[in-house]
Design a binder for these strands. Sequence first.
DNA 1: TAATCATATTGTAATGATTACAACTCTGTA
DNA 2: TACAGAGTTGTAATCATTACAATATGATTA
Lengths: 138, 138
Amino acid sequence: MKTVSFEDLQKELKNRNINLSYQRLKILQYLTNSQIHPTVDQIFTDLHKDIPTLSKTTVYNTLKLLVQSDLAKVLTIEDNETRYDINIENHGHFKCESCGEIYDFTIDLDSIANKELKNFKINDKKVYFKGICPRCLN
Amino acid sequence: MKTVSFEDLQKELKNRNINLSYQRLKILQYLTNSQIHPTVDQIFTDLHKDIPTLSKTTVYNTLKLLVQSDLAKVLTIEDNETRYDINIENHGHFKCESCGEIYDFTIDLDSIANKELKNFKINDKKVYFKGICPRCLN
DNA sequence: TAATCATATTGTAATGATTACAACTCTGTA
DNA sequence: TACAGAGTTGTAATCATTACAATATGATTA
Ligand SMILES: [Mn+2]
Ligand SMILES: [Mn+2]
Ligand SMILES: [Zn+2]
Ligand SMILES: [Zn+2]
């Protein structure tokens, strides 16, 4: 699973004429460093320790910007928690129903394209699994 | 894609000692008759015409009951609309970004099980596609 | 440098979906 | 008829998200 470097992300932003403010930089760093597919609240709470003036609205705005620019993806594994993934490569997500942790896994999404959909234009594919992770099985 | 008959559903409810009230009956009928993967609001609004006393809370309660009893599934294709599917057979969902319609498609979920997950206990698999449907492509 | 302008951020209020909860209703049984 | 348990209802509370107006920032121009 390829990971896009932080520098590449900065370039991408410039390509799209998106200014890199201090807040945007910090949110982007948080997303690239953490592998936890965070919620808005996790991002806000963690960053708020360093940036006491940070507004939650800014977090929402920035994430919307990143998603619209195809630099991040929205994960809706549960109906009550929206998560964000800076890794836009195609891959699946497994959520442990016991500890709540979310695991990435590689998946060949091309192989699951379906004949029934041959006349459909497919722009996005999401694969979500749920169950119990090995750590919790012990 | 196998469809469970309404009579089978009734039996399943009895097996689980779930009483079939008039409201529950109507909600169940609505789910089996409509193939639109409705939201709570759609169910409530449509049924409210026939049952003016119906409460939205009852719709929420009944759906929660059906999901807990494994007689319905929750779909979270978008982060802002929770939908329900009475068809619990494994199948994928395609949402048209133009008209909003949701299409079922068959998919062999066993074939996309992954070696990386061989030590995981998988309880549920969801596959969501987005794009443009043939009708909207014309 | 100072003035100007566009963009970004902030805080608060509004919205909308969902849940909590207490009162009421219905149905079957003693 | 009285009672008990389950189901329903309406309202209030909660929580995530969005709208919006005021303020701040940062680049551009004179
Ligand atoms: Mn991921
Ligand atoms: Mn379906
Ligand atoms: Zn776990
Ligand atoms: Zn369409």
